[in-house]
Design a binder for these strands. Structure first.
Length: 269
DNA sequence: CGCTTTTGACCCGCGC
DNA sequence: GCGCGGGTCAAAAGCG
């Protein structure tokens, strides 16, 4: 498993700046009571749980570590979940079983049925402390380090997700800070996953190699978090969601319970 | 009526 | 410098 996992880690979808792609993979061994998570550097932990009708994927913030393969039992205590959970996505369980899944990492799709969180990636800037983002100006693009995916697919991902260049945009002579981003790929019939926050669509664009990516902004005042949702042209079952920025508030469905922002929640979202 | 979505125009970075 | 293409803006339309 470990060797397979490391091979998968090298199977990054996106070119990253000055570093190999950091891709987290979720390994769901058949006939196993637990899932194996290989988190990307400085990324979220995530796990899935299943009932007869739904598959729930939960993203948790975690401390950056290197090459830490983590086994998470399905019966994680409720206390731990409630204290750490920042976003839970529940999908309905219905998926065609005649899907062509040969091109997917085998250990990634053998887990149950229904839409699944297949992979997750966090941009290099996320690995830095929040004050270090400005330092990435002037860096050069790295050469493409590719693993299992075909060249054209790899290129398509890194290109249309805009993760290949970490150069800062300018706004009237002033550098625009590129917010930390991460993306994950799910197999889902639903485009916009319920992550607990309210989003307002502000754009949709026809882009090469993808199907009309949609752009969303968090509806909360003073919250600049954006997300981009797209389906892969080569596999419309796959949804890639890219988050940019950090929420300055709790998920909307928590507002009734607590108005105070949680430091844990703010770790990432 | 207020909020959300749609969509064409515009801006700007990047490659040539 | 120019053209292309991704991302954003903002007015209009849609919807509850």
């Amino acid at each position: 498993m470990a060797s397979t996992s490391q091979a998968m880690l090298n199977q990054g979808l996106f070119e990253d700046q000055e570093a190999p792609p950091q891709m987290g993979f979720f390994s769901f061994p058949p006939n196993s009571g637990s899932l194996t998570l290989i988190p990307p550097l400085g990324c979220l932990k995530a796990f899935s749980s299943s009932s007869s009708t739904t598959t729930t994927s939960t993203l948790l913030p975690c401390i950056p570590t290197l090459n830490n393969n983590i086994n998470i039992n399905n019966n994680i205590s409720e206390t731990l979940l409630s204290s750490l959970s920042t976003a839970t996505t529940t999908y309905s369980k219905h998926r065609d079983h005649h899907d062509d899944q040969d091109h997917l990492p085998s250990s990634a799709y053998h887990f149950g049925s229904g839409p699944q969180l297949l992979s997750l990636q966090r941009s290099t800037s996320n690995l830095w402390s929040w004050g270090e983002v400005n330092d990435c100006l002037g860096s050069k693009r790295s050469s493409i380090i590719n693993g299992g995916e075909s060249d054209h697919q790899y290129h398509d991902h890194r290109h249309h997700l805009g993760l290949s260049t970490m150069k800062m945009k300018k706004i009237k002579g002033r550098r625009k800070v590129r917010e930390p981003r991460f993306c994950f790929k799910t197999m889902s019939e639903v485009d916009v996953l319920d992550d607990g926050y309210k989003w307002r669509k502000y754009g949709q664009k026809v882009v090469k190699n993808t199907q009309h990516p949609s752009y969303y902004r968090c509806t909360q005042d003073n919250c600049r978090v954006k997300k981009r949702v797209e389906r892969l042209a080569e596999d419309p079952r796959m949804v890639i969601t890219t988050y940019e920025g950090r929420h300055v508030h709790s998920p909307s469905h928590d507002l009734e319970d607590s108005q105070a922002p949680s430091p844990l929640n703010n770790f990432f979202w």
